[in-house]
């Protein structure tokens, strides 16, 4: 028996909106500690890790661990039927092949039940090692989204370079090139507007903007985003979900091929 009651239902909606573009089908894993998901995109370049801790739910009951395969687009469709202020409850029976989403309006005068068929998804769970990242950049998520959006109109890839001066996003395309440098800026009034660079070593990595842009769909979840970079490791773009957990996107860097540049 599974019963998760989330007062802030809009949060679940946002979570789905943030990952459904990247991943079509995924298993949601429910355990006593929380509600989580890990999935790769179809090309196996990016990975999403979602965690909603049990403490974040108003009511959390999970008798035994279970994994529910869902089509995220379908799930998003159902969740769209919930109002932004609705309380969402997720219910499932052990061994059942459906999941039920119950939406209660804040005034309790409307209660909707949506039952969705589960799928059998053969997904691989990846072990993500704890890594020390060379550089961690924290910045306003909207700023990051803006940068990715702007750069993607110019080029396909973004080079993210972190130095002690700041973090530089640069791209290059047919029409020209672009560089955006964000300097560390901790003295703003609101901490969520600050840009903090925690760098042990300078890093420079290249990523496909397409993926970055789909990561920024999670912008509504958090005011800040943290980007952790290490040479030879996938970047981690993390949006914290207040008091509940996080959505983390891992993206494998683009690797420069040996013979790439044969410029005389």
């Amino acid at each position: 028996m599974l019963e998760l009651r989330l007062v802030q239902g809009s949060l679940l909606k946002k979570v789905l909106e943030s990952i459904k573009e990247l991943v079509n089908d995924a298993n949601f894993d429910c355990s006593s500690t929380g509600f989580s998901l890990q999935a790769m995109d179809s090309s196996h370049v990016a990975l999403v890790a979602l965690l909603l801790r049990s403490e974040g739910f108003e009511h959390y009951r999970c008798d035994r661990n279970m994994s529910m395969g869902m089509n995220l687009n379908n799930m998003a469709k159902m969740l769209k039927c919930a109002g932004n202020d609705d309380i969402i409850t997720i219910k499932a029976d052990d061994g059942g092949d459906t999941v039920t989403f119950m939406f209660e309006s804040p005034t309790q005068d409307k209660i909707s039940d949506f039952e969705m068929k589960l799928m059998d998804i053969d997904s691989e769970h990846l072990g993500i090692p704890e890594a020390e990242y060379h550089a961690i950049v924290k910045m306003p998520s909207s700023e990051f989204a803006r940068i990715c959006r702007d750069l993607s109109s110019i080029g396909d890839t973004v080079v993210i370079s972190v130095t002690k001066e700041g973090v530089k996003f640069s791209t290059r395309g047919d029409i020209g090139s672009a560089n955006i440098v964000c300097r560390q800026n901790t003295s703003v009034d609101k901490p969520e507007e600050s840009t903090v660079i925690d760098m042990n070593e300078p890093v420079s990595l290249t990523f496909a903007l397409r993926y970055m842009n789909s990561f920024t769909k999670a912008t509504p979840l958090s005011n800040t985003v943290s980007i952790s970079l290490s040479n030879e490791l996938p970047v981690v773009v993390e949006y914290k979900i207040a008091e509940m957990g996080y959505v983390r996107f891992y993206l494998a860097p683009k690797i420069e091929e040996e013979e790439e540049d044969t410029k005389p």
Partner: peptide, 12 residues
């Protein structure tokens, strides 16, 4: 440069 997209599976 021609860059090759890395695969996440090669890291995890």
């Amino acid at each position: 440069k021609d860059t090759k997209q890395g695969n996440i599976l090669s890291f995890f």
